Computed example of a mutant assay.
Amino acid sequence: MNNKASGQVGTRPLIGDAPKASVLNLNFHYNTGLHALKNLNMEVPQNRVTALIGPSGCGKSTFLRCFNRMHDLYPGNRYEGEIVLYPDNTNLLSPQVDPIEVRMRIGMVFQKSNPFPKSVFANVAYGLRIRREKDRHLLEEKVERALREAALWNEVKDRLGSLANNLSGGQQQRLCIARALATDPEILLFDEPTSALDPIATASIEELIRQLNAKVTILIVTHNMQQAARLSDFVAYMYMGEIIEFGLTDQVFTTPVKNETQNYITGRFG
């Protein structure tokens, strides 16, 4: 943990580390009329793990999916505010920014593994081919590198042509991580990535996340307080579409500023 930093809510957070992204006055409205996120302000520290915690329905996954414009897939959803990605100061929510390119820069791993009904190789190469990469040697190089980074290469190197669905649950989730890594993302989003896995596979994914944040900034949604404490450097507690408290994980878990945070962490609420 980086003990130099401290978090503030409602202003520009003083996180100490250089930010990879800044969330500025973010609001999100579903096409049903639900105002799901309300004036969020937060910095995402570069090459750190930031956990989003809070009770079900508080807006964690909704917030996460703003980063890679997943909400664009449903007509009528609406963003207000900005998510600025550094160092090029790109507002990811700008209508002038292609959401497909956003998803190349901001990878995502979902709650349940979702390998495509294709070979292991084709799964990992998928994003590269969307980018129209045709050089077979380069594809092979990037696929191998991504599988190594996802700690899966030694298990699948002799069956790259086999269907991805033949892998175990934990292997499929690591394959999805490799698929996200292949396009060299700047931020990697994890939406409860271990909730469907057994303890052994969960430990493997957690160890992988610890290793990955040396090269990529990570945002993770988790309902598991122990997991958030183990994995994250920073944590944001959310409730009813708002960020109640944001700061260093050690600080928030041991001496939270807000009573609402204390009640949630100690199990008196949520």
Rank of each mutant, 00 (worst) to 15 (best):
E140N: 15
R148V: 14
E140V: 02
E144T: 13
A146Q: 11
A146N: 08
E141L: 13
D135W: 08
G127P: 03
Q171S: 13
V156D: 00
K142H: 07
Q171E: 15
R148T: 13
E141C: 13
H137T: 15
L138I: 12
V143N: 03
E144D: 13
R132W: 03
N165C: 08
G169N: 14
R131A: 09
D135P: 10
S162G: 12
Q171N: 09
L160N: 02
A150P: 08
V156W: 01
R145P: 06
L167R: 10
Q173Y: 04
R174W: 10
R131Y: 05
A164W: 03
I130M: 04
R159K: 15
A150C: 09
N166V: 14
L167F: 06
A151W: 06
L175R: 07
R159P: 07
G169K: 12
N154L: 07
K157R: 09
A146I: 08
L167N: 03
G161F: 03
V156T: 00
S162K: 14
G161Y: 12
G169A: 14
R129F: 10
G127A: 01
L147N: 00
D135E: 13
L152T: 04
E140Q: 13
K142I: 07
G127Y: 00
H137A: 15
L128G: 00
A151R: 06
E149Q: 15
Q173S: 08
N154V: 09
R159W: 02
R129Q: 15
D158V: 05
R136F: 03
A151L: 04
L138G: 04
R174D: 03
L139M: 06
G127N: 00
I130H: 04
E133M: 03
E149V: 05
R174G: 05
S168R: 06
E141K: 15
A150F: 02
G161W: 03
V143M: 04
R148Q: 15
R174S: 10
L139D: 00
R129K: 15
H137F: 02
K134M: 03
S168E: 13
E155G: 09
G169I: 11
E144K: 13
E155K: 14
S162Y: 07
L175I: 08
G127V: 00
N165G: 10
E149N: 13
L147S: 04
G127D: 01
K142M: 10
L147I: 08
K142E: 11
R129D: 12
K134L: 00
E141I: 11
N154P: 07
